[in-house]
Structures are given as structure tokens and as C-alpha cells.
């Protein structure tokens, strides 16, 4: 059964670690005590991450509109110039304005990151929940496909296929196709535990059809895991896109992403640091922001899942 290949690893990583019983069964929560109010949504670091993320998102959406230059403009009086009043981020070797390029790159990276994360997490939730709930041949089939995609080197396949397409939508589809598997394994593991939960059994014994149990009882109760995982996938998608674009397999001109900017800037980074550092810095800030939010959600919703960050 191929399901045991990564299933073993991921369930161990996600659910198997934490001893099930709480430490002090006697003094934690008496059964009849008033249930506690819901915990606060975000910690201080989570709020910081959210603020930074909102700021970067606003910058990405509004910035390119406010900057007087466009991506296609070339300033023939300023080749590879350091930051100035005219070009606050400096210019590229061909006279492009780095400010507008960086902001557009940020926009594309953010867009790709979020779309891929949402799509991949959706696929993961459905595949994992159906495999884990139905088990049997459904599980074996779905997990075999999952294993197959896991053993395929994602970078290579995405690079091969996307080298034939210059469309960034194609890139999103490809990245999605290779990002859902680990989450799906985790979802499957949790679902297997969950299908023995009494509220799922109760629904089954009530005569609720299986697919409706999955969609109504299983998936909604995975929401916390999924939201946390989606944020992690945002940064994973952005990083993957960066690597691909760095080698020219990702976003193709005239589109720019932070990855393609870093690739363009790296050779000149030593003597023209502005070609490299703006894009690299913004990328790091973006990942930090996403990770801060993701970590916070993860800790809040599902402490048992911290392990697979």
C-alpha cells in the first residue's frame, strides 16, 4: 500500500508527536466549569506580520500606479545609476526604473503566492479528506497519485513544462500541481483520526450521505489546519517561483517578479548593490510577514501541527 510511504512520515510529524492526554488532567478544566471565551485571534507577532503584509500588499497594488515610470520605460540618461530623486531605487543596466520594476515584481510574487496557496490547499483538502474518509481503493488510488507527484522532482517538471509557455497563469497551475501533496497527506492523516470521532460517527448513524459528511463535518473542522497550511504554502510558492524565475523558467519578460529581478541583479550586486538588494530585501520582508501570520495561526489553531512547519 503506497499510502504508508509518506503517510507514515506526515502523520507522525503532525499528529503522532503530542501525547494525547493533557499533563494535568486533574487541574486543567473541570467538566462543568464555564467554557473559556475564545482565545484572541492574533498574538503581537501575528499582528506585526499582518501589518507588514498589508503594507506590502498596498504597496504592490497602489505603488506601480503612483510611480511616474512604467516597466517598459527606459531612461536613456541613466544606465545602472544609484538611487536618486528621479529613480528612488536606482536604474538597471538598460535604464529601467527599479522602483516600478520592484513593485511590479512584488505584485506578481504576491499574486502567484496567494493564488497557488489557495488552489493547492483546496486540492489538498479535497484529496486528503476523501482519501482519509473513504479509505480502501479510493485512498489507495489517490495516495498513489500523491506519491507519484511527490517522487517527481517538482522543480524539473515545472521547469520543463513552463519553458514551453510564457504565460504566468500556466506557471500558477504548474506550481499548484506540485504543492498540494504534503498537505494532502497531513489532511488524510487527520481525517483518518477524525472519521472515528463521535460526531462523524453520529452523522453516519443518522444516515447522512458520505460525501456530505466529508464536506460538512470533516473539511470545516480542518479549517484551522488548512488556513495555517495555506499561509505556509504562500511563502513556499513565492520561494519556488523565485528559484524558477532565477533560472529563467518562471515569469518571462515582459512580466517581472522578485525572482527574475534578483536573477538580473545578482551579477551586478557587487558594484551596483541597488540592482539586487531592493528585490531581495522586499522578498525577505514578504516571506517574514507571511511566516509571522502563518506561525501565529498555526500555534493558535493547532498546536499539534507546529512540528511540520
Amino acid at each position: 500500500m503506497s499510502a504508508s510511504l509518506w503517510g507514515r512520515f506526515t502523520t507522525r510529524a503532525t499528529t503522532g508527536l503530542r501525547p494525547s492526554a493533557s499533563r494535568f488532567p486533574d487541574l486543567s478544566t473541570p467538566v462543568e466549569a464555564r467554557p473559556e471565551a475564545r482565545p484572541r485571534m492574533f498574538s503581537a507577532t501575528g499582528i506585526a506580520g499582518l501589518a507588514l503584509l498589508s503594507f506590502l500588499a498596498a504597496l504592490a497594488v497602489l505603488g506601480p500606479i503612483l510611480v511616474p515610470w512604467t516597466a517598459a520605460d527606459r531612461d536613456f540618461e541613466a544606465f545602472l545609476q544609484p538611487p536618486s530623486a528621479n529613480h528612488p531605487f536606482g536604474t538597471t543596466a538598460s535604464g529601467g526604473d527599479l522602483l516600478v520594476l520592484t513593485l511590479l515584481g512584488l505584485r506578481k510574487s504576491l499574486l502567484i503566492g496567494f493564488v497557488v496557496a489557495v488552489a493547492a490547499t483546496t486540492v489538498a483538502a479535497l484529496v486528503g479528506a476523501f482519501a482519509g474518509y473513504f479509505l480502501g481503493w479510493v485512498d489507495r488510488t489517490l495516495m498513489w497519485v500523491t506519491d507519484l507527484l511527490l517522487v517527481l522532482p517538482a522543480f524539473l517538471v515545472v521547469a520543463v513544462v513552463s519553458s514551453g509557455h510564457d504565460d504566468w497563469i500556466a506557471l500558477v497551475v504548474l506550481l499548484t500541481a506540485f504543492m498540494w501533496m504534503v498537505t494532502a497527506k497531513a489532511v488524510r492523516g487527520v481525517t483518518i483520526v477524525m472519521r472515528d470521532r463521535e460526531y462523524v460517527k453520529a452523522a453516519r448513524f443518522m444516515g447522512v450521505p458520505s460525501h456530505r459528511i466529508v464536506l460538512r463535518h470533516v473539511v470545516p473542522n480542518l479549517a484551522s489546519l488548512l488556513v495555517a497550511d495555506a499561509t505556509v504554502n504562500v511563502s513556499a510558492a513565492i520561494l519556488a517561483e523565485t528559484s524558477l524565475s532565477y533560472f529563467g523558467f518562471g515569469v518571462a519578460p515582459p512580466d517581472v517578479s522578485l525572482g527574475s529581478l534578483i536573477a538580473d541583479g545578482a551579477p551586478t550586486a557587487l558594484y551596483a548593490p541597488w540592482t539586487f538588494w531592493w528585490a531581495a530585501g522586499l522578498l525577505i520582508a514578504l516571506i517574514v510577514a507571511v511566516n509571522l501570520v502563518g506561525d501565529d495561526l498555526r500555534d493558535r489553531f493547532d498546536p499539534a501541527l507546529r512540528a511540520c512547519a
Partner: peptide
């Protein structure tokens, strides 16, 4: 037949879907 045979589990905090309201839980059957 399910209508004639129903079950109450041991742990009510596990047998009620935490994401549903009491009304929705009782209405589900």
C-alpha cells in the same frame, strides 16, 4: 431503519460537531 435506531455517545464534547450550532446539530437528523 436508521430512524428507529439512534445512539448517544460517551463524551458529548466529542460527539457534537464543534463548528455547528446547537440548532443545526439537532436539526441535522
Amino acid at each position: 431503519v436508521r430512524r428507529d435506531l439512534q445512539i448517544v455517545f460517551q463524551d458529548p464534547s466529542a460527539s457534537l460537531d464543534p463548528r455547528m450550532t446547537v440548532g443545526a446539530i439537532v436539526a441535522e437528523p
